[in-house]
Amino acid sequence: MSEDAQGQSGTIRPPDTAENSVVVCGTAGGVGTSVVSALLAEHRAATSLGGASWWVDAAGNDGDLHQRLRATGDQALLRTASGTGLLPAPDAAVTDVVVHTWRFGAVPVVDAGSRPLTVLSELETPELRDVTPVLVVGPRPDLLNRAREIFTEWDDAGVLARTIVVICCQVPTLNHQALTDMLIEVVAGRVAEVVGLDYEPILGDGTALDKAAQQRFSQNTWTAINQLTVATGAVRR
């Protein structure tokens, strides 16, 4: 365990809330990992956690989510209109990031980028046993084929069983339903839950994702986000 993960009186534990801390990984770049993780943190802030909901940017990229969410305030921890805290942590280990937020009573959603095999070793540790992993997958044949190794490695490590899979469709003309159904059939019973996120025109614009933009989401999008929110609020194992 790193020095930051150890308190003076013992291991730092997560806040006593119904919601779990979450680590979100993409099975490839560009599948929607940052957007899915940010919207989860936003929905939790709006519905249950308030300012204790933090979105942590640990993807290691030059992202623009803080701008798209119209966050303001202290650069060390910006806030959105929904109350979500946005914490930049580009160079930190996921374990250190999560424990750091717990010190402030926060319940983070960590955007770990497209590093599912790298992050897996941390998700196996006792420090993160109460954290819910999320894998974001794109419903394209090439992306699903590339995800096979990731599912196998996560399954062998015993992490897949507590993982929520989000199938994120980012192309409006993509006939993804057959691929989505196939993936659900393959992973059903091996993962905690599967959430299908259909193409959302507001997200497809690539512009603002603030509270006003979120209010224009389709009902299908809200249903998927709510399903993901409920799934990550399950009782800790």
Rank of each mutant, 00 (worst) to 15 (best):
V137N: 08
P139S: 05
M182A: 15
V166L: 04
E153L: 14
Q177A: 14
D130V: 11
V94F: 03
R70E: 11
P90R: 03
A92G: 10
V171F: 01
T132M: 02
D74L: 07
V99A: 04
T180F: 04
G85K: 05
V166N: 02
N145E: 14
E149M: 14
P88F: 10
R148K: 13
V171I: 12
S82Y: 04
P139T: 07
A161L: 10
N175H: 10
A112D: 07
V110R: 06
P141T: 11
R146M: 09
I167T: 06
R115F: 12
S82H: 02
V191I: 10
A93M: 10
L135H: 05
P133F: 01
D111G: 08
D91I: 11
P90D: 07
L143A: 13
P133D: 01
A71F: 09
V131Q: 10
R70Q: 13
R146I: 09
T84R: 07
V97D: 00
E127F: 10
D181T: 15
L135A: 07
P133H: 00
S82M: 05
Q170G: 14
N175Q: 14
G189K: 10
D74A: 07
T95H: 02
T72D: 01
C169Y: 05
G85L: 08
N175S: 13
E193D: 15
Q177S: 12
L128K: 03
V137P: 01
E127T: 11
L179R: 12
V166I: 01
D156Y: 05
T80H: 03
L160R: 04
T125W: 03
A161W: 03
T132E: 05
E185L: 13
E185Q: 13
M182V: 11
L87T: 03
V194E: 09
A178F: 05
V98M: 00
T163R: 01
A76Q: 12
V110L: 00
V191E: 00
P126F: 11
R129D: 14
L69S: 03
V119Q: 00
F104A: 15
P88T: 05
L183V: 13
E193S: 15
E193M: 15
L144V: 12
T125I: 09
R140L: 13
V137C: 02
A89M: 09
T152L: 13
M182Q: 15
G138P: 06
T125K: 06
V187T: 05
V171N: 11
G189M: 04
A71T: 10
L183H: 09
R70S: 13
P141N: 02
V194G: 04
A188V: 12
R148D: 15
R162D: 13
V187W: 06
A147M: 10
A161S: 10
L174C: 11
F104Q: 12
P108H: 04
Q177N: 07
V98E: 04
E122K: 09
V109Q: 04
V109L: 03
P133M: 08
A92V: 09
G138T: 09
T72R: 08
T118D: 13
V137R: 08
D96V: 00
D74K: 07
R103L: 08
A188Y: 04
V137I: 07
L183C: 08
L174H: 14
L128N: 02
T173I: 06
A92S: 12
A89P: 08
A76T: 10
T95C: 10
T173H: 01
R103A: 09
D91L: 11
T152P: 01
H176D: 14
